[in-house]
Deep mutational scan, measured.
Amino acid sequence: RSVMTEEYKVPDGMVGFIIGRGGEQISRIQQESGCKIQIAPDSGGLPERSCMLTGTPESVQSAKRLLDQIVE
């Protein structure tokens, strides 16, 4: 099973929602998708923050879907 890492951008203002209280939302996304998510510590003043998604292609797709649901 191939593991890939893909960069994915999320709106900087939504990072708090994505991480959730005490990190529980991001933990849930990682468990549900099976994908490891690393969010950049800051956006460098840009409107979007970079996330690194690491996992199988299916888990990366799944994580993107879950992130999109939060961001919308």
Score class of each variant (00 low, 15 high):
residue 22 G to C: 05
residue 31 Q to M: 08
residue 6 E to K: 13
residue 16 G to W: 06
residue 15 V to A: 07
residue 41 P to N: 09
residue 33 S to E: 01
residue 57 P to Y: 09
residue 18 I to L: 13
residue 29 I to D: 00
residue 61 Q to Y: 09
residue 43 S to Y: 04
residue 70 I to K: 11
residue 47 P to D: 13
residue 62 S to R: 12
residue 71 V to A: 10
residue 40 A to G: 10
residue 5 T to E: 14
residue 61 Q to R: 14
residue 52 M to Q: 11
residue 15 V to K: 05
residue 32 E to P: 01
residue 20 G to S: 07
residue 7 E to I: 12
residue 70 I to C: 14
residue 25 Q to L: 05
residue 60 V to T: 04
residue 42 D to H: 10
residue 23 G to I: 03
residue 41 P to V: 05
residue 8 Y to M: 05
residue 27 S to L: 09
residue 17 F to I: 10
residue 27 S to E: 14
residue 65 R to F: 15
residue 35 C to E: 00
residue 66 L to R: 09
residue 16 G to P: 15
residue 24 E to K: 10
residue 32 E to M: 08
residue 7 E to V: 05
residue 56 T to F: 06
residue 8 Y to F: 13
residue 48 E to N: 12
residue 59 S to Y: 01
residue 4 M to E: 06
residue 63 A to F: 00
residue 22 G to F: 05
residue 8 Y to N: 01
residue 41 P to W: 02
residue 57 P to H: 04
residue 30 Q to H: 07
residue 11 P to S: 05
residue 47 P to E: 11
residue 62 S to I: 07
residue 34 G to I: 02
residue 47 P to T: 13
residue 47 P to Q: 15
residue 66 L to T: 08
residue 19 I to W: 10
residue 17 F to V: 13
residue 43 S to I: 12
residue 12 D to Q: 11
residue 54 T to H: 09
residue 8 Y to C: 02
residue 50 S to T: 12
residue 1 R to E: 03
residue 27 S to A: 15
residue 25 Q to Y: 04
residue 48 E to C: 04
residue 26 I to R: 03
residue 12 D to Y: 10
residue 40 A to D: 10
residue 34 G to M: 05
residue 7 E to F: 03
residue 8 Y to P: 00
residue 55 G to E: 00
residue 48 E to I: 09
residue 10 V to G: 02
residue 37 I to E: 00
residue 33 S to L: 02
residue 46 L to D: 13
residue 24 E to Q: 07
residue 48 E to K: 07
residue 19 I to F: 09
residue 21 R to D: 02
residue 47 P to I: 09
residue 35 C to L: 01
residue 25 Q to G: 10
residue 20 G to I: 02
residue 67 L to A: 01
residue 16 G to D: 15
residue 9 K to D: 03
residue 29 I to V: 11
residue 13 G to M: 11
residue 29 I to L: 12
residue 21 R to E: 02
residue 52 M to N: 07
residue 32 E to G: 03
residue 57 P to V: 06
residue 47 P to H: 09
residue 28 R to H: 12
residue 66 L to A: 07
residue 31 Q to P: 00
residue 21 R to A: 15
residue 53 L to T: 00
residue 54 T to V: 09
residue 47 P to W: 05
residue 16 G to N: 10
residue 45 G to W: 03
residue 69 Q to G: 14
residue 39 I to R: 01
residue 15 V to N: 03
residue 34 G to A: 05
residue 65 R to H: 11
residue 38 Q to Y: 04
residue 11 P to Y: 04
residue 48 E to S: 09
residue 25 Q to M: 11
residue 41 P to R: 11
residue 66 L to G: 05
residue 28 R to D: 12
residue 10 V to C: 07
residue 5 T to P: 02
residue 32 E to A: 07
residue 59 S to G: 09
residue 56 T to K: 11
residue 27 S to C: 10
residue 39 I to V: 11
residue 42 D to W: 06
residue 58 E to D: 15
residue 51 C to Y: 05
residue 18 I to G: 03
residue 51 C to I: 14
residue 30 Q to W: 15
residue 32 E to N: 04
residue 44 G to M: 13
residue 18 I to K: 02
residue 72 E to Y: 13
residue 7 E to L: 11
residue 47 P to K: 14
residue 39 I to C: 05
residue 12 D to N: 15
residue 61 Q to D: 14
residue 39 I to A: 02
residue 1 R to I: 14
residue 51 C to S: 02
residue 48 E to D: 08
residue 9 K to P: 05
residue 70 I to W: 12
residue 18 I to Q: 02
residue 28 R to F: 03
residue 57 P to R: 12
residue 41 P to L: 03
residue 43 S to H: 08
residue 6 E to H: 07
residue 26 I to P: 01
residue 14 M to K: 08
residue 46 L to G: 13
residue 29 I to E: 01
residue 3 V to R: 11
residue 17 F to R: 15
residue 62 S to V: 14
residue 2 S to W: 04
residue 14 M to L: 13
residue 1 R to F: 15
residue 17 F to K: 15
